[in-house]
Amino acid sequence: MSVSPAPDAPARIHWSEGGADHSALWRSESGMPAPKKVVIANDQTPADTAYRLACEGTALLWRGDFQNARQLLQALARRADHKGKRAKAPKIPASPAEAFHLHRQAQSQRARTLAMLLIPFDADYTIPLRRAPDVSLACNEAYGRPTEPFVASLRELLGLIGAHEWRKNGVEIAALGDRIHPYYGVFSPIRGEYLELVNQAPLPANAKLAFDIGTGTGVLAALLARRGVTKIVATDMDQRALSCARENLHRLGFDDRVEVVKADLFPDGQAPLIVCNPPWLPGRPSSSIESAIYDPDSRMLKGFLGGLVAHLAAGGEGWLILSDLAEHLGLRPREQLLAMIAAAGLKVVARHDVRPTHPRASDASDPLHAARAAEVTSLWRLAAQ
C-alpha cells in the first residue's frame, strides 16, 4: 500500500478487495496523509477489532450500512476516551505550557485514530452505502465541484455536515441584531464577548474609514458599519473567508459600505481606525479551521503590530482584540506582547477587558481549566508614539 509517488499530484489511497487492487482519490481537509494500510470493514466488524486496527494505523474502508458506521465511530470515540482516562501514571506537567502541549498531543492522537474509519464517495458526492444521507451540498461547500470518486474519513464528513448546518442556520450576533453565516473552514464568531468589546469601545472622532484585517466571516466589518463607519476595507488571504465575508455583508445590506479585498494583512493607504482579531495562540494549526486559533510564531500578530504605524492616519487608533490565554499557558508572556507593541512604535491608549462566558471557562474537567478560568479577552487601543 502506498500513496501516489508524484509530490504535486493529488494523493491517492490504495487497497485490495475481492482479489483485486483498487485506488481512489484521497481527500483530507486537515492535511492527513493517505493511510498506507487499508482493510475492508462492514457491519460485522467488531468495535474492539476496529479500534485495535485504528490505533495501529490501519484504516477501515466501510462497506456496510452508513448509520452503523456512525455508531462504530461513536464506539471508537468511547474507547479512545476511556483509554485516556485509565492511562497508568499519567505524566504530571511541569508547567502550563507542557500541559498544553500534552493536551494537544493527546487530542491529535485521538483525531488520527478516529480518522481511520473511511467512507467511499462517487463522483457526484453520492455515498454508495445503505441509508447514506444526501451530502452533496455539504461537500460542494467544502470541496467545490466534484471531479471523480474519492475516499475520506467519516469524521471529516461529519464535520462537513456540521459546518453546512452552521452555514445554513447562521450564528446569532446580539451586537448586530442579526445572524452571521460561516463557511466551512472559516472560524465561527461564537465568542460573543470580544464582539461586544468592538461594539462598545469608543470610536476615534474621525473614524469615517476603517480597515478590518483578517476579516474572516466579515463580522467585525459589519459591526463597524452598523456603528456608522462610512467605509470599511476588509482583508483576508483565504478565498473561503473572502467569499464568506462578501455573502454575509451583502445579506446584511453593508456591501455598499464594505469593500472585501484579498491582501496579506493591510490594504493600500491609511485609515483612522484599523481593527484586527488575530489567532490568539502561537502554534502550528493542524487543520484549516485551526488557522483562526493558532498563529505560527505569532506571525499575524507581529505583522499587524509591525505595519500599524505606517497605515494609521494621524490621530488614528489600532484595535487589537486578543485573549491572554497564551499568557496563562506560558506560551507568550505579557512582557513579550508589551515589548512587541513598543518595538513597533506604538503606545497603549486604553485597554477594555472582558471575561469569557463560554462553557469551557467553568469546566473543571478540562485539562486546561486553570488557564481558561483565568482568561481575559482585551481590546487594546493602540496609537503611534
Rank of each mutant, 00 (worst) to 15 (best):
K231L: 12
S23A: 12
Q200D: 13
E98N: 01
I190L: 12
H103C: 05
L76G: 02
R191C: 08
I289C: 02
V260D: 07
R240D: 13
V309L: 00
R112I: 00
L242T: 02
H311V: 05
P333K: 01
G218A: 08
A89M: 14
Y183W: 15
L154H: 05
L209R: 15
D268L: 11
E247S: 12
I119T: 13
R191Y: 12
G159A: 02
A111K: 00
D363R: 10
S287M: 06
V309R: 11
G269N: 11
D236N: 02
L329C: 04
R70E: 11
R112K: 14
A138P: 09
I127P: 01
A373M: 03
I232C: 07
T126Q: 14
D134K: 08
S291E: 12
A370W: 02
E375Q: 12
P128L: 04
V135W: 06
G228D: 13
W380E: 09
E193S: 09
L325M: 07
L322N: 06
P278C: 10
V229S: 11
G185V: 02
T126I: 06
K168P: 04
Y183N: 12
H14C: 14
K208V: 14
P282D: 02
L220D: 15
A34F: 12
A99I: 05
A89C: 08
R226C: 09
R332H: 07
A97M: 06
V376K: 02
P93K: 02
A24P: 06
H164P: 00
R246S: 15
R226G: 05
G345N: 08
H164M: 08
A310R: 14
L368Y: 03
D124N: 12
D134R: 10
Q109I: 07
I321K: 07
P202T: 01
V219Y: 05
A75M: 07
